[in-house]
Amino acid sequence: MLDTMTFTKTLGAFCGALLIFLLAKWGAEELYHMGGHGDVQQAYVIDTGAEEEVEVAEEVSLDELLASADLGRGARQFNKCAACHKVEDGANGTGPHLYGVVGRDKASVDGFGYSGALDAAEAWTPENLFAFLENPRGYAPGTSMAFAGLRDAQDRADLIAYLDSVDN
């Protein structure tokens, strides 16, 4: 049976164990952080024999990326966009339709209320789309588009090639 005395002893044992764990944690932190935060120097430096080299990624032109673009991979990349955009002509979703977007003027879809962050005087060239798809909020500050962007250049090129292919 569980009476008051048994309950009190169980609760006391639990609190005592918790106190021991907290004291052990405090002691370990004190041992680990001895000497302060800013005045600690590395005791031994391992010389690997090589200077630190910064590897520079080979820059590939957009034309080469588009020439090697895979439409199947682009269609899979479009699945990230499909929640808000449609590729059918005139079928706006949360975002404007992307039918014929390559070469189309920016902010030019009838019946869609744009946020005003895009420069409507320009067209959606592959170069503009490439920059926009990397970081939409960086390309058009103030846009209401919540997409984080595509970091991989080949993924962006695949998506642009796919969008260019849907309108024949």
Rank of each mutant, 00 (worst) to 15 (best):
V54D: 15
P136F: 03
A161Q: 04
A146K: 14
A57H: 15
A75H: 02
A17R: 07
T94Y: 14
L163F: 04
A57F: 15
A91N: 09
A153N: 00
D119W: 03
Y44S: 06
A157L: 10
E55W: 08
F78S: 00
D158G: 01
R104L: 15
D63S: 15
D110Y: 00
K86W: 12
G74P: 11
A131M: 04
E55Q: 13
E58Q: 10
G149H: 01
K9L: 09
M1A: 01
A24Y: 01
T48I: 11
R137F: 02
S68N: 14
V56H: 14
Y139W: 02
N135C: 04
V101I: 15
F132L: 00
G35V: 02
P96M: 14
F130I: 09
L163I: 06
L23P: 00
A161M: 10
V45S: 07
K106A: 11
H97G: 12
T125A: 06
G103C: 14
S115T: 12
F7G: 11
L133V: 02
G103K: 10
A69T: 01
D158Q: 03
S108G: 06
V109M: 06
Q42E: 11
E64L: 06
D158N: 08
V45I: 08
H97F: 13
A82P: 05
T125D: 07
G16N: 00
T6A: 06
F132S: 00
E53H: 14
L133H: 04
R151P: 02
S144W: 14
F78A: 01
V60Q: 12
A83R: 06
E64M: 10
E59R: 12
L2I: 14
M34A: 14
G111R: 02
V60Y: 15
D3L: 05
L159V: 08
G111S: 07
T6S: 06
G90H: 09
Q41H: 15
Y44A: 13
D105R: 05
L62T: 09
Q41P: 13
A131Y: 03
G113Y: 08
I20K: 00
F14C: 07
A13N: 13
N128P: 01
L159A: 03
E88F: 04
G116C: 04
D155V: 08
E58G: 05
L31C: 10
H33K: 14
N168W: 09
D89H: 08
A131P: 00
L23Q: 00
L18A: 13
G27F: 11
K80Q: 05
C84F: 10
E59I: 12
R151H: 09
L71S: 00
A107R: 04
A17I: 04
G12P: 01
N92G: 03
L23G: 05
E52Y: 11
L22M: 05
L31E: 09
A157M: 12
P141R: 04
A107P: 02
R73V: 10
H37A: 11
N92Y: 03
M5I: 11
S144N: 12
E64A: 05
G74K: 10
G103S: 14
D105V: 11
Q77N: 12
K80T: 00
P141W: 11
T94P: 06
A83G: 14
A83N: 09
D164R: 13
P136M: 01
L31M: 13
S165E: 11
A140T: 03
Y99H: 10
M5L: 11
V109I: 10
A28S: 12
A131R: 07
D70N: 11
T143E: 04
A17N: 02
G113H: 09
G27R: 13
G72V: 07
V166P: 01
F147G: 06
